[in-house]
Every structure is written in C-alpha cells, then in structure tokens.
Amino acid sequence: MNRTDSGPGQAARTGIRYLVLAAVSLLLVGPVLWMVSASFKSLNEILVFPPTILPTQFRWDNYARIFELQPFGRQFGNSLLVMAAVCILTVVLSLPAGYALARVQPVASSIIFVVLLSGIFLPPEATIIPLFLLASKLGWINTLWPLIIFTAVLTTTPIATFIMRQAFLTLPPEFDEAATIDGAGRMRTMLQISTPLVRPSLASVVVISCWYSWNQFLEPLVYIRDVNLLTVPVALTRFTDTYGQPLWNVQMAATTVSVLPVLLVFFFAQRHVVAGLAAGGLKA
C-alpha cells in the first residue's frame, strides 16, 4: 500500500513501524540467538541466575560431543531422506489430482474434493494408534516407511492437492482447449502446458511437504526405536548422559547444528525464497 502522506506525522509513523518491527524481530530471532549462545556454555553457566548473555568461555567441545553421543550425521541423513521421499511422493500424487479436480472435473469430483479436503484437517494424532498397529502388522516399526508413506499419503498430499487445484483453477479455461485443439494429448497438456504455469505453486507444495516432514515429531517418536534410524527432531531430545540426564548444552549445540544448514541455505537464497514465495508461489 503506497502512502503519499508526508511531514512529521509520517516520520513518527515510520518510527513506530520500525519499533514494532524491531520488537517482533527480537521476539522471533532472540530465542535463536540465545540457543546459539547457550550451545557454547558449560552446563553450569546455562543454569546460572541471572543468566549470562554471552558465554564466559566458548566451549567448542559441546559440538564435538554431539557426534560422540549419537550418530547425529546419520540421523541428519535420515531426515533428509524422509524429506526428499515425502516431497517427491507428494508432488507425484498431488499434481495430477489437483489438475483433475480443477480442470478435468470428472463426475463427482466435488465429492472427491471434499473427501480430500477433510484430510487437511485430519490430525495425525487421531490416526496414530491404528497406523501404529498397521505399521507393526506390516513390519514397518523401526523403519522409515511409515514416516514416508503415511505422511505423504495422509497428510501432505491432501493439502498439496488443494494448493494445486487452486493454482490450476487460476488458469483461463481456453488454455487446455487451445492446446487440445493443437493436438496435444491430455496428459501432455497437463504436464507440458499447464504445469509450467503453476510452477510457483508447485514450489510451495515442495516447500510445505519438505517443511512438514522435516518437522515430524510424533511419528518418529512412535515408529522409530533404533537410534540409527531416528530423524533429527526426536534425536534432539535424546542428548543425555549415560544415566539419562539431559545434557542441555550439547542439546543446544545439536539444535544449532540442525538449524544451521537450513538457515545458511535460507540466507544465501533468502532473496529468492522470499521473493519467489512472494511472487505468487503461495498464493492460495
């Protein structure tokens, strides 16, 4: 929204805006900074009151211990693997479904849409018990399968389908007609003509499904026992000494490590991510 006002009132307003923005940023970034600071502290210093802002002595040792206490590299790999698999599966399932709902609209597609839409609201907590039993029957306990299949099919695909449907709906109707008249097959029309136009939405499907699977906590908590198969979020809660007492400083170090790559990618690609998303990617 452009404003054309000017003068001292405008300056005051700008000041207030900066103040609000700074306060919000502090609330959002402050904890992350505190986490990084705590990751260098000794256990004692983390617990000292009043708290220190910066560590009195930087303990890099905390970072070395992450990898001694748990196969953290491997757990990171598990997380990446699950994320990639969920992401691919979601795209493969939701792109055609969204296209069908928006542009092909076979008989009763609106009912199908409602059914899928209910999936958006089906919380994993409501289905975790039977899925857990299903996974034990299938021999999937202590494998990454349930994290991939159940999540993609039940959780990410419905919302992704919704996004894709909305995206395809925004294309003018002549689009596929013209293509069909030109002799392109239906499948080809979908993939080569329509799909490129909804790339931003496709990107947001990728982002959302990656984001969801990267954050999964309940599922690995329930399905995975082997420490070598854990994904990062649950692994973060497992940094304890040999008697089960949490090592908070190492935990914070591991948390920092888990966040760092994502943050780095974000800061390098920041302009593209924000601009890309803002350019219409997440337009509903």
Binding site: N215, V232, P233, V234, L236, T237, S258, V259, V262
Partner: peptide, 8 residues
Amino acid sequence: PALVTMVA
C-alpha cells in the same frame, strides 16, 4: 523461527 524445527 519457521526454519527451526518445532522441537528445537
């Protein structure tokens, strides 16, 4: 914060 996992 959106980039930090919920657990973290």
